[in-house]
């Protein structure tokens, strides 16, 4: 469904991605793990078009979406939950969700009801400003906001970042639920164990290159992965 081929990207002279290949099939949860600065977030930013790739192609079905501006990519059904949540703190929860539906993909009321069903707390607090939510609730809002554009592919950047363990498991359960609705998910995580347990397949990113890939259970059993990312 989504295939990155030989993607190079970076920030000025700094090369963050040095030719990576990733393939995501419809309905899958694919996790991308790696340490700080490996290029995980850069990879998602490149897919969403917020960062322009230097070379390589990003095929969505039969079309190359590399180099398209972010709004065209949202229009094509790829939505991102950025790292650190990045909700709009002074807008209310409802307004935050409205921003997610900015391009008007799909029916607003239907999407809204779906989000409220997924996260009832957002419904309870819809008139509260986003900044007053707890970290976990903000993460729910960020995910809800991204889902408001009715994406086919959801890009999740470190959804467990800075959350209490109980919140982490709640968020991961929600990701599973979203996946069961038929949405394809690319999950970037530092919490490698939780991510691999949830996902079907995984990629390991090191210094801007994919060094390992395979089914999640294979990666969980892999000695190198265990030493570097699972702390065993």
């Amino acid at each position: 469904m989504l295939r990155l081929a030989n993607i190079h990207a970076g920030y000025g002279p700094i090369k963050a991605l040095k030719g990576i290949d990733i393939e995501i099939n419809r309905g899958e949860i694919v996790s991308l793990i790696g340490s700080n600065g490996a290029g995980k977030s850069t990879c998602l930013m490149t897919i969403s078009g917020i960062l322009k790739s230097v070379s390589g192609s990003i095929m969505l079905g039969d079309t190359d979406i590399a180099g398209l501006p972010p709004h065209r990519i949202v229009q094509r059904g790829i939505s991102q939950v950025p790292e650190g949540r990045r909700i709009f703190p002074k807008l209310t929860i409802l307004e935050n969700l409205q921003m997610g539906a900015f391009l008007g993909r799909g029916d607003f009321t239907t999407s809204l009801e779906r989000i409220y069903k997924l996260f009832p707390i957002l419904h309870e607090r819809k008139k509260q400003s986003g900044g007053t939510l707890s970290g976990g609730e903000q993460q729910m809002l960020a995910i809800g906001r991204a889902l408001m554009s009715n994406p086919d592919i959801l890009l999740l950047d470190e959804p467990s970042l800075g959350l209490a363990p109980i919140m982490v498991s709640k968020i991961f359960k929600t990701i599973q639920e979203i996946s069961s609705e038929g949405i394809t998910i690319l999950l970037v995580e530092q919490n490698a164990r939780a991510a691999l347990k949830l996902s079907h397949r995984g990629y390991v990113l090191e210094n801007g290159c994919i060094t390992l890939s395979g089914s999640s259970s294979d990666l969980l059993d892999n000695k190198k992965v265990q030493q570097a990312y699972l702390g065993e």
Partner: peptide, 10 residues
């Protein structure tokens, strides 16, 4: 509020 988030929303 947040330009990156805003562009991620399209």
């Amino acid at each position: 509020e947040d330009e990156i988030a805003a562009s991620a929303m399209g």
